[in-house]
Amino acid sequence: MVSLTVNGNQHQLDVDPATPLLYVLRDDLALNGAKYGCGLGQCGSCTVVVDGEAVLSCMVPVMLLEGREITTIEGLGTIEKPGPLQQAFIELQAAQCGYCIPGMMMSAHALLRRSARPSEEELREALATNLCRCGTHMRILAAIRRAGELMQAASLPGADEGRTG
């Protein structure tokens, strides 16, 4: 048995402890936001946030995640009430095919928890492990900046008042 906390919910799962988190999320918890892209930790489509840090879920066995807080794209908001990051991506039409977007959003979520107004360098570094072939990179960067503004305006936990670094 493996015990995982995902999006604030506790789960007791009868899975092999060596199973990568991505498979448990998709197959056992029906959380399909994280995508299988390469299975080698090279594309970022499977990115989730663990204890505030972006993690490639295809590379992390669930046995290393007990007692840690896992957040997936499903934990950021709903269709009816999107979170600030989701709202910004919608407003700025930052997605095309959508395959890489959950991973991009989760990398951005981890960054925005540290700094609501990241520098250009911080933005690009945070997204370095996320590949996209659609060509909306400038809109994605703008959406992340907009999400930081929305977070500050709403004074949401995790949004700082200024810049770090």
Results as ranks from 00 to 15, higher is better:
S119Q: 09
L40C: 11
A30W: 13
E121R: 15
L64C: 06
R117S: 13
K35D: 04
T78C: 12
L123C: 12
G103Y: 08
M105K: 12
L40I: 07
G33R: 00
T72F: 00
Q86Y: 04
G83V: 08
Y99S: 03
M106S: 12
R113Y: 01
Q86C: 07
C132H: 05
P118C: 03
G44P: 10
P84E: 06
V55W: 06
H109N: 15
G77F: 04
G75L: 06
C38R: 11
A88W: 01
E91P: 08
G37Y: 04
L111R: 08
F89C: 01
G77L: 03
V62D: 08
Q93F: 08
L65C: 07
L76K: 09
A126P: 12
E74I: 05
M104C: 04
N32G: 04
G44W: 13
L92I: 07
V55A: 14
A30C: 01
L56R: 13
P102W: 09
P102S: 02
A95I: 12
L127A: 01
A30P: 00
T72P: 14
E122A: 14
E122M: 13
R114Y: 02
L29A: 04
R113Q: 15
M63D: 11
P102I: 11
C46H: 04
C38K: 12
E125S: 15
T47I: 15
V50C: 11
E121T: 15
K81P: 00
Q96W: 13
M105I: 13
G44K: 09
A88G: 03
I101W: 08
C43H: 04
R68Y: 04
E69N: 13
G77C: 01
S119V: 01
G37M: 07
L31R: 06
E121F: 08
C43K: 07
E91Q: 06
H109L: 03
S115H: 11
R68V: 05
L31I: 02
